[in-house]
């Protein structure tokens, strides 16, 4: 498993590229938010649900592309009166960028494609199940205590 901080570093890199970018989220294709970075000025939102929708929307488009046999999905752009959402393929995950309405779309696309390659590599490492000594026992402890908590609900 790779160092989680590496995601924050790459996402911060993306957010710095254009002043209109407000939020970067990395999700996997099951809807789980893996990492996210926001500008301080950005509105506070529930990132987990943003990530879940971003992942589902991207995967739904991907499915649509498969049905229509028009190849691999690269980027989904959603344009709103007050902002834009970009979602791009990123290996086993989806990279999601939220921006203001007035923004250099070309730059965001470029940066997403460029950093997406590196993110995809890191994501592969992150998701790879490498048994580490002592790691499994730790997980088992977590699972065991969840089991006990569950009975008390």
């Amino acid at each position: 498993m790779s160092e989680p901080k590496v995601f924050d570093k790459i996402l911060t890199e993306i957010i710095r590229q254009d002043k209109g970018v407000k939020k970067c989220i990395l999700v996997d294709k099951t809807g789980l938010t893996i990492a996210n970075v926001s500008k301080l000025s950005a509105f506070v939102v529930d990132t987990d649900s943003i990530g879940a929708i971003a992942s589902a929307v991207f995967c739904a488009s991907e499915e649509q592309g498969k049905n229509l046999q028009i190849g691999e999905l690269e980027i989904v752009t959603s344009e709103f009166s007050g902002g834009k959402i970009f979602a791009s393929a990123c290996g086993k995950g989806v990279l999601c960028v939220v921006s203001e309405a007035e923004v250099n779309i070309g730059m965001i696309r470029l940066v997403m494609k460029k950093q997406g390659v590196q993110l995809a590599e890191e994501l592969d490492k992150f998701l790879a199940v490498e048994p580490m000594p002592g790691k499994d026992e730790l997980d088992e402890e977590d699972l065991k205590s969840a089991l006990e908590e569950l009975e008390r609900v």
Binding site: G31, D48, I53, D142, S145, A146, E149, L150
Partner: peptide, 12 residues
């Protein structure tokens, strides 16, 4: 879909 994250406490 509907979506809710839930926890019975702890790290799961």
């Amino acid at each position: 879909f509907d979506y809710v994250p839930m926890s019975a406490g702890g790290r799961v």
